[in-house]
Simulated assay, not measured.
Amino acid sequence: MGKAGKALKQVLERYGITQNRLAVVMQVGRSNVHRWVYEVADPVGDAILEIRKGLNTINPAAAEEFIRLYLDESEEDEEHS
């Protein structure tokens, strides 16, 4: 599973944002956020944008870091080396 979950987990921990708070802001079930964070399921493309939007509402720096981590290709480059 994926990069989005790893990025989301890192950002939530770094900025002290709970899964529940993000779920409330995004208007989704906390179980959805939990599945993403623990890489049980990958968020679909639209959900990535909604995660960014929700994080931006809570803390714009967290939203920026989420996208930066999600789009960072260096991790993939290391896996393919």
Rank of each mutant, 00 (worst) to 15 (best):
E78A: 05
S74Q: 10
I17G: 08
G54S: 05
V25C: 03
K6E: 04
V24Q: 06
Q27M: 05
V33P: 13
D72C: 05
Q10F: 02
D72L: 06
N32Q: 14
W36F: 14
G16L: 11
E79Y: 07
M26H: 11
A63W: 00
E39H: 13
E78M: 08
T18S: 09
V40K: 08
R30P: 10
L22R: 04
P43L: 10
K53Q: 05
A61P: 13
V44Y: 13
L8H: 09
V37T: 04
A41K: 14
E79M: 02
H34E: 14
A62F: 01
L8Q: 04
A47P: 08
V25P: 03
K6R: 07
N56W: 08
S74C: 07
A61N: 12
L8R: 06
G2W: 00
G29Y: 09
V28C: 13
N20E: 09
Q19C: 11
V37P: 15
K3M: 11
G54F: 02
K9I: 10
I51H: 04
L69T: 01
A41V: 15
P60R: 07
R21P: 13
E79N: 07
E39I: 12
Y70I: 03
S81W: 07
K6I: 07
V37Q: 06
E73K: 00
V37A: 06
S81P: 03
D72P: 02
I17K: 05
A7L: 05
E13P: 00
Y38H: 15
N59W: 11
G54D: 03
E64V: 03
E65G: 01
A62E: 09
G5W: 00
V25I: 12
V40M: 09
D77Y: 01
K6H: 00
W36Y: 13
E75W: 06
L8N: 08
L22S: 05
N56S: 06
H80M: 14
R35P: 12
R52K: 10
Q10T: 08
N56P: 03
I58M: 12
